[in-house]
């Protein structure tokens, strides 16, 4: 170790892995991962979300899995919980949609209406 900068660089690299163990986060992204979700392809969606959140250093976002949400035909389902806002439910999500949800909804704060459960009703 030759300088403080070198240490700080190593710290930045190492910190990403530890972010997972911080439970005090405001935004929760939840993926339905019951048998129905897994069969519909929820696993790559979950992993994409985890990677995107880590890549963009979104330290306030927790990506977690949950059991069956109850609408198996609409899986993979992703729900986003933000404080003081209504829950947003995305349906039929795939990896590409997941990337857009992270970029548009979580980073820029614009709900991707076309992927939401509300859009499918209309």
């Amino acid at each position: 170790m030759k300088s403080l900068e070198e240490l700080k660089k190593l710290r930045e690299e190492s910190i990403k892995n530890l972010e997972m163990r911080n439970t005090e986060k405001n935004i929760r992204v939840v993926v339905g991962m019951a048998t129905c979700g897994i069969a519909a392809g929820a696993r790559p969606v979950l992993n994409t979300l985890v990677e995107e959140v880590a890549m963009r250093n979104l330290n306030d976002v927790q990506v977690a899995q949950t059991g069956c949400i109850g609408m198996c035909t609409l899986e993979p389902i992703v729900e986003i919980y933000e404080p003081d806002k209504e829950k947003v439910t995305y349906i039929n999500v795939n990896s590409d949609k997941a990337k857009r949800i992270v970029a548009e909804h979580i980073v820029n704060g614009n709900i991707v209406r076309e992927f939401t459960i509300g859009a499918s009703d209309n």
Binding site: M1, K8, R11
Partner: peptide, 22 residues
């Protein structure tokens, strides 16, 4: 109970050795 004590990177991620550097 937060870090893996056998992995120095996890200690560094928690501001480890920053005090020594300072």
């Amino acid at each position: 109970g937060v870090i893996n004590p056998e992995n120095i990177n996890e200690y560094i991620a928690r501001d480890g050795y920053l005090a020594l550097g300072k």
